[in-house]
């Protein structure tokens, strides 16, 4: 079996952002459930948090390609 270890590394690195994104949206859902009128504000914040969390997974993709060569 052949392949790139970098891909495994990327898989591992995606765990963290995955958990983070899940936590962010869990907080967002419970926040909206508690205060539906704050939805607009929470949405911006949630997407911002999602993006900041996701960027590490994206770095992972880039770096996986860098180290796979």
């Amino acid at each position: 079996m052949t392949g790139s270890l970098a891909i495994v590394g990327y898989g591992l690195s995606a765990i963290g952002p995955g958990v983070g994104v899940g936590l962010i949206f869990a907080a967002y859902v419970s926040g909206v459930a508690r205060q539906p009128e704050a939805r607009g504000m929470l949405q911006t914040i949630a997407i911002l948090g999602f993006v900041l969390c996701e960027q590490f997974a994206i770095f992972g993709i880039a770096l996986a390609f860098v180290f796979s060569g």
């Binding site: 993006v51 996701e54 960027q55 994206i58 770095f59 993709i61 880039a62």
Partner: peptide, 13 residues
């Protein structure tokens, strides 16, 4: 860097 990489990474992946 994150700004560029995020957009690129999402589209690329």
């Amino acid at each position: 860097v994150t700004l560029a990489l995020r957009l690129f990474g999402n589209m690329f992946a």
